[in-house]
């Protein structure tokens, strides 16, 4: 197991390098000059050159990349052009907000998904199954931003019970565990939970139905296990795949949703990314993308390791 762990950790290094190279160069493919966004239109050539030199934009791209990686491993992702604050701090602030939102969305999505999926799997082919499947398909298919807007219209505009945007009164972006803040997270969390609900419902439904049809379930019943006893076996068999899917879903949510965070003006990473793109804030954009990409690499690693722990059939050596 330890050897497997070390091996998996070593695999991460080349992946991380490749990912950062892609993140870095992608930005240069997009049109637009980062400095033109902050400089006045009549800025002198010397001023442009000076700024370019300050940000290192005058060097060849490979050199820029090497310097960027060199600083990135020390935790320095550069300075945001738009705000002048360190990129790492901007990301740190946004990521904690995104985590809050993702936490609630996952709590809703996983609970509903596991419940619906299990019920549908047990009642496969009945009207219950069909109803649940319809809900799951709707959850995956309905566009996020549209649902978000509908929720805002119903609960904020018509009923006026929940706030429409932001994450706290007076534009606060500091989370706290009280009702004043909780009310802000309800609508975006519900909106964001739709896709994990749908995906997990479908996954669990297929898994449970498949497991229940297997011969060993007949054997378990045949030796007198109660429904609860059989259910424990279903859980352990469905566990690894479900965990993997939940891990990926959690990853997506932690990565932040540009659409949902923008609709609800939730100051998370998606919102940050959106802002960075529109302001051509290259260091912020590169830093955020790199952070999110590495985040996914780490997430997949964790999911893989967890699966290995649970499922004895995955080879450990």
């Amino acid at each position: 197991m330890l050897l497997y762990l070390i091996k998996r950790l070593l695999y991460v290094v080349p992946i991380a390098l490749a990912v950062s190279a892609v993140c870095f160069s992608l930005v240069f493919l997009a049109p637009g000059d980062p400095l033109s966004a902050v400089l006045p239109a009549d800025a002198s050539t010397e001023m442009v050159e000076k700024l370019k030199a300050d940000y290192g934009f005058d060097k060849p791209i490979p050199v820029q990349f090497a310097r960027w990686v060199g600083r990135a491993v020390q935790g320095d992702l550069g300075t945001s052009i738009a705000t002048g604050r360190p990129v790492a701090i901007e990301i740190g602030r946004a990521i904690s907000n995104t985590f809050v939102l993702a936490f609630f969305a996952c709590a809703i999505g996983f609970t509903l998904g596991l419940f619906f999926g299990t019920v549908a799997g047990y009642f496969q082919g009945t009207w219950i199954d069909k109803l649940v499947t319809a809900i799951a398909v709707a959850g995956v298919s309905v566009p996020h931003y549209w649902l978000g807007m509908v929720l805002v219209i119903v609960f904020s505009v018509v009923l006026n019970v929940l706030p429409a945007v932001g994450m706290g009164a007076d534009g606060s972006s500091q989370w706290a565990w009280d009702w004043e803040h909780l009310r802000f997270v309800i609508l975006p969390a519900i909106t964001l939970s739709m896709i994990p609900t749908g995906i997990i419902t479908r996954t669990v439904r297929a898994l449970v139905a498949d497991i229940l049809a297997r011969e060993f379930v007949a054997a378990l019943r045949g030796k007198g296990l109660t429904d609860r006893g059989v259910f424990m076996h279903v859980v352990k068999n469905a566990g690894p795949t479900t965990l993997a899917v939940m891990g990926v879903q959690l990853g997506y949510l932690l990565g932040g949703s540009i659409l949902v965070e923008t609709v609800f003006s939730w100051p998370g990473t998606g919102f940050l990314l959106n802002t960075a793109i529109f302001q051509r804030d290259v260091p912020l954009l590169q830093g955020t993308i790199l952070f999110l990409a590495l985040f996914f690499v780490a997430l997949n690693l964790i999911v893989d390791l967890l699966q290995t722990l649970i499922d004895p059939r995955i080879k450990r050596s």
Binding site: E215, F216, A219, G222, K223, G224, L225, K236, P312, R313
Partner: peptide, 30 residues
């Protein structure tokens, strides 16, 4: 009744054991 009065051996032993539980646990469980 199942397992205590009447029990069964299946055709395909690979398919009739739960793959993610040890043999010992599956016998002990019964």
């Amino acid at each position: 009744y199942r397992g205590a009065v009447t029990s069964m051996i299946f055709q395909e032993p690979m398919l009739s054991f739960d793959p993610v539980f040890t043999i010992g646990r599956q016998i002990a469980e019964s």
